[in-house]
Design a binder for these strands. Structure first.
Lengths: 254, 254
DNA sequence: AAATGTCGTTTTAAATAATGAAACGAAAAC
DNA sequence: GTTTTCGTTTCATTATTTAAAACGACATTT
């Protein structure tokens, strides 16, 4: 494990759980030696990515991480672009809307707009979404570089609910259908009782960089709703893609 | 230079300049060997802090930095708390409002609400504000741990405009006056033609963790305005402090 | 067409940084 | 009053990091 990987792991540990943690606690959580953890924390503090409360000696994520995120947003305005459009979609449909971005860690959910209804679907941010078991994942694979799907289907496919599809051939069918339709349909493959539709967010080369999804409690959705929700999610996802790339979204032909 | 420091420097380099950069370009900017730069980038990519455009091989900051920032905001809602209040202050006064947070890198400006007027003061985010030459810095020192002021005055004090005060004794007077008054007054010490007032944002131990400032073109400000702007900035800064700590803001007596 | 420059990438021995066990006093818990 | 846990420092061992060199693949220039 490289030193860089260790340092970032430590940041992730800091980001989880309690807002402020002790050195010994962090060392235990990250499974590093106490001295190593301390050295990493000092280095990260020096860079402003970690802060320490002067009196209590507790550590927390520093303003530096916000600074990096602000710099990224200035260069690649993913959140600034997508959030207002996602909010509009949530208002229009009345359901929870969330979007994700693909990275080497997989498809990461980066923002959620929760439905105002009492019975709503909660989606944690920062979570890695399994490509084969979520509407977002299927929509993403349908419009991403083909190698991503091949890699995903080559690995062991975990089952999350009794409804999860784990047969590679069946997943290929779902992906093909999503590509033909423009959006994917997720029926309780990841969480029981959750129905969702998702559409790809396209990057400048016409391949998917993420996905936009609407998630609703199964009980509230009539079969007839699927198409209207699907159309709505595709429309908003295209708007996000257009604003992101500065030009008309165009699907790459694989 | 530790490996962690190098990796973070690379992130900072990535955050500056063009949104997407080549390996050779980054190696030059960061002044690392090409092979070293590549290894660091690969490690950072693995952690999602850096992304690479599949086709063009260009690098950019990854979604991981946004993820860390979201985790920090969930634990320590600095931006979520301060932004709406800063916006209200900007609306009320009609001038640019910005706030900063202190870290080991100094006082970093983290958000700016620009005045709607044509003639307005622009403040870049992510910038390190010199403690001795800005209203924010003076207000911060007046209510921070005394050692911070001593450290700042011990270093060489740069001059940014003909009006910059660089005499340590004179700066001590400014700080004392700010502490007595509750807010500091900056008169073109950092940028020519810019007048500003600032008040501290207090943390849970009653010492300053940052500063809130109003910045306006010199020409627009009458001497009589100073007090009303000062009172307004103090009021909003106290509100931010209260919401941040969850209790009534209380100034630590040094 | 040939030559030159730049790109990303891989390899290597040498240099350097990271590691973790041990020990410390201080503080906290028992 | 005792024991545990805390943060911190030290240091020989170990592992990683480093940077020069060489590579083929492109682009650009001659």
């Amino acid at each position: 494990m490289s030193t860089v990987a260790k340092a970032v792991s430590l940041l992730e540990v800091l980001g989880q759980g309690e807002p402020e943690r002790t050195l010994a606690d962090l060392a235990r959580s990250a499974d590093f030696d106490k001295a190593t953890t301390r050295r990493l924390l000092l280095a990260l503090m020096d860079q402003g990515l970690v802060e320490q409360d002067g009196g209590s000696r507790l550590y927390r994520l520093g303003i530096g991480v916000a600074r990096l995120a602000l710099m990224r947003e200035a260069q690649f305005p993913f959140l600034r672009t997508a959030v207002p459009l996602a909010e509009a979609l949530a208002a229009k449909t009345g359901e929870t809307v969330h979007f994700s971005e693909h990275s080497s860690r997989g498809l990461i959910s980066v923002h959620v707009v929760e439905s105002s209804k009492a019975n709503r679907v909660a989606v944690p941010i920062g979570e890695t979404l399994p490509l084969h078991a979520t509407a977002s994942g299927i929509a993403f694979m349908a419009f991403a570089d083909r190698r991503i799907m091949e890699a995903a289907l080559g690995a062991r496919l975990a089952s999350y609910t009794p409804h999860t599809v784990t047969n590679p051939a069946a997943i290929r069918d779902l992906v093909s259908a999503a590509r033909a339709r423009g959006y994917s349909i997720g029926a309780q493959g990841y969480e029981d009782g959750v129905f969702s539709v998702a559409a790809p967010i396209l990057g400048s080369r016409g391949t998917a960089v993420g996905a936009l999804a609407i998630a609703a409690p199964r009980a509230r959705i009539e079969p007839a709703d699927t198409e209207s929700l699907g159309t709505a999610v595709v429309e908003t996802a295209f708007q996000i893609s257009e604003r992101l790339t500065g030009r008309r979204a165009k699907i790459a032909n694989e």
